[in-house]
Design a protein around this nucleic acid. Structure first.
Lengths: 190, 190
DNA sequence: AGCGTCATGTAACCCGTTACATGATTGT
DNA sequence: ACAATCATGTAACGGGTTACATGACGCT
């Protein structure tokens, strides 16, 4: 079983108590939700109730509009730690649409391919730039507490984007070589 | 709609006709299936029948054991090209367990964290080494035809692994700084 | 009053994985 | 004979997304 949502929630609650709404924001489209694990509120609320039934989290505060603030319990901490230490480094199931597109482009005109690749490079570069801005707000040290999460994630996003840029440019070079009339490739040996 | 499996199949069939079994191998645990898009036979066979009904692929050969070899049709080519050109560079939904673990590690002892990070580094490095071996079989030029697919994928895998290694080492540095008694971090300003 | 946000919840649907199932062919 | 591989198929289950639903609070 590879369900990581409960552990994502436990991890966030281990840092500081939050409501389901706050967790939904954290796992939304910024920081941890953007680069590590995304989830919508319709997954989060039932999961919180489940974790509560299991005694891994507890209600530490209640506020207006039915708001419940959850905190992690001792059992929750144990569960989190056990999972982290015991679980092997899992082989992630590949589902990378960018890379898939690269393949598919190979089956089309090299001109089309280079064109779309260029778009990929542009997109990844602008995202990387965004990440660098985040990093520059704390150039030397990642902040402790919840803010640090966002920075570790941003650093990963930056490096991942840079890898995509480098790779896409390399691939463009490969396609250009194929287009080049002075250096035609032999047909596939099928 | 972001379903990429049909396009993965069309792309593979655009290169050369294959059977469902061969496609299952291609989308298994090597090359394209490892780094771009993974799928099992229980997804592939029904999808092939669907594509066949839609006239996007055709049976080009039948062999022993009920084997059917499929090829892409003109309509299939059109569909593939349309999707590639029209579809925007999709924002991928983040579901990266490695990065998630990084977050969760932050909530534990720095010693535990560094320990597990080291395992991640080791794992990524051995995978990267594997990829370099593949690349060395064609140092200068990626092969045309289906073999080229695997090489583009391997190149991506290599760069992605290298990014993980660099990032994990950076993160270890961050944690070590936190552990260091000479330079303690202030508590989170909650 | 009305709009935007805060806050939680449920149900239908889509898709992928795991497991169940079957049988032919090839190599030893 | 027997095992491994080739080859295809279906069903149960799990988990996520989208959409449906509801209501309180704060600001203008």
């Amino acid at each position: 079983m590879n369900v990581s949502l409960p552990h994502a929630l436990l991890g966030l609650l281990a840092v500081e108590p939050r409501s389901g709404y706050a967790l939904t924001e954290a796992l939304g489209n910024t920081g941890i939700g953007r680069h590590a694990w995304h989830a919508g509120h319709s997954s989060i609320y039932p999961e919180l109730n489940r974790l509560h039934r299991l005694g891994l989290i507890e209600v530490t505060d209640e506020g207006a509009r039915g708001k419940r603030t959850y905190g992690i319990t001792g059992d929750g901490h144990d569960e989190l730690r056990t999972w982290l230490v015991d679980a092997p480094v899992t082989p992630p199931v590949a589902r990378n649409e960018i890379v898939l597109r690269m393949f598919l482009l190979s089956s089309l005109d090299p001109d089309d391919a280079i064109n779309i690749l260029q778009k990929i490079v542009t997109h990844a570069e602008s995202e990387a730039e965004e990440m660098r801005l985040i990093r520059h707000t704390y150039p030397d040290e990642i902040p402790a507490g919840p803010a640090g999460f966002g920075h570790i994630a941003a650093e990963y996003g930056l490096r991942a984007d840079e890898a995509v840029v480098g790779w896409a440019k390399w691939a463009i070079g490969q396609f250009e070589r194929r287009v080049s009339p002075t250096d035609p490739l032999p047909s596939p040996p099928i």
